[in-house]
Nucleic acid binder design. Structure first.
Lengths: 229, 229
DNA sequence: AAAATTAAGTGTAAAAAATACATTAATAAA
DNA sequence: TTTATTAATGTATTTTTTACACTTAATTTT
């Protein structure tokens, strides 16, 4: 019967995480070298299995936390991958999530323990299974989402310069942006607070630091913005 | 161990379909009155379970075909829903798909057999489980996707008038559009063929019929268009 | 102490895109 | 032949986007 509930076709559900980070070298992803079969020794997204009494979102944050020690990280579900032989060991459907990490604060210890490593998007190694497809999909989603939601800030430190923000968007969109036009577009959103503080690392003059004004953003609009960069 | 493959946590995977149709009354969805427990007699999306050796996309098309007789339908995966008690009978994760149907050709027989019925989006009944959330999610996705991909045509007959296309976009976006601006924006995409034929149903003068020029669209660009309506 | 260096910060004019808007055309029915 | 109905069409205005270069502030070098 069409709609019968039956144990016959239960499957394993995995969660794989595309973990994005950003530093002065550009946009990065965190990968692990698998220390178990199959594909032991190959590079892989960070993943795990959904537990019986766990929601997918929780599985994603749990897995992220296990490998990186991070909590309260922005994550978004992407897509369910279900090719029959995508995992050669057993039929496994994987639901991908992407995460945005402020790379400055990552937990070195945990990452080392799991042989995890940050790679520039551009020169990431070939990944196992369908993980390359997941990565590509995640980048597309990230591009779209950052153009309508203020999630880019998740990749930056609490306080950041306009240059950092510009370079972040350049990395995400992988194209050059005009500095003046970028700044005026960002300013027109009116969601940043310009601090009195300056960052003195990058120049002699020093550049003003900004923070994301989450309260203002939230009270401002329920709708998305449109950021045509 | 973190990454062990284990049968312990296998789950049922369902697929639920948000089936959109369009006619002169507007945008519609196809719902069924459940004839089995739980929630027997309530309105529901059309759904079913993933089979062991089946890919999600295939499950979605199979389920759609079973209820409507349709084949070769545009479908897109939306999202995986995994709340613990979303289905009260058993832990079930559901992956939603939306489908775009040319409502003129639907298979009346099959739809009647399954107590299926088209509802205007505006006055759809309360749905079971988390199906209302799925529907809302699907409308959002449909809005976005039709603004960058030529999938609106899937909801129209092979030959259609500009007025039909206009009203389709108005229904999807649920806002009024200026006729002249709409037509010039559509024309600027250069993906329609204006036929010599006219549709005489709607007026004395008759209005030209168009078809989507799929070949031209495909040779034209690998990228998406941007349709700011 | 002056000169050179470096990145920060800032505004405007031109081009392109989006919008608002009203009349004529074709035909069938009365 | 008059009336009624929807189809078809273009332009001027406003808004948005783009392209573009010099001055400022502070440090380092000479």
């Amino acid at each position: 019967m069409l709609n019968s509930y039956s144990a016959a076709d239960k499957v394993l559900l995995a969660v794989d995480c595309i973990i994005f980070g950003f530093d002065n070298e550009g946009l990065k992803i965190l990968l692990i070298k698998r220390d178990f079969e199959p594909e032991k020794g190959k590079w892989s997204l960070i993943g795990g299995f959904l537990k019986r009494d766990e929601v997918l979102d929780n599985a994603a944050t749990r897995i992220l936390n296990t490998y990186t020690g991070f909590q309260d990280i922005y994550m978004e579900q992407l897509y369910a991958y279900s090719e029959i032989d995508r995992d050669p060991v057993e039929r496994t459907i994987s639901v991908s999530y992407y995460a945005l990490i402020n790379i400055e604060n990552h937990n070195e210890e945990l990452i080392k323990n799991y042989h995890a490593q940050w790679f520039s998007i551009a020169d990431a190694p070939k990944l196992i299974f369908d993980h390359d497809e997941m990565l590509e999909h995640a980048i597309r989603r990230l591009r779209y989402r950052t153009s309508i939601k203020p999630i880019g800030f998740e990749l930056l430190p609490e306080k950041f310069t306009m240059r950092q923000l510009l370079e972040l968007y350049e990395a995400i969109l992988s194209k050059e942006l005009d500095k003046r036009n970028f700044i005026s577009k960002i300013n027109s959103l009116e969601i940043l607070i310009k601090l009195d503080e300056k960052d003195m690392q990058s120049s002699r003059k020093g550049s003003y630091l900004y923070t994301f004004n989450k309260e203002k953003y939230e009270e401002k609009l329920l709708n998305d913005f449109v950021l045509n960069l």
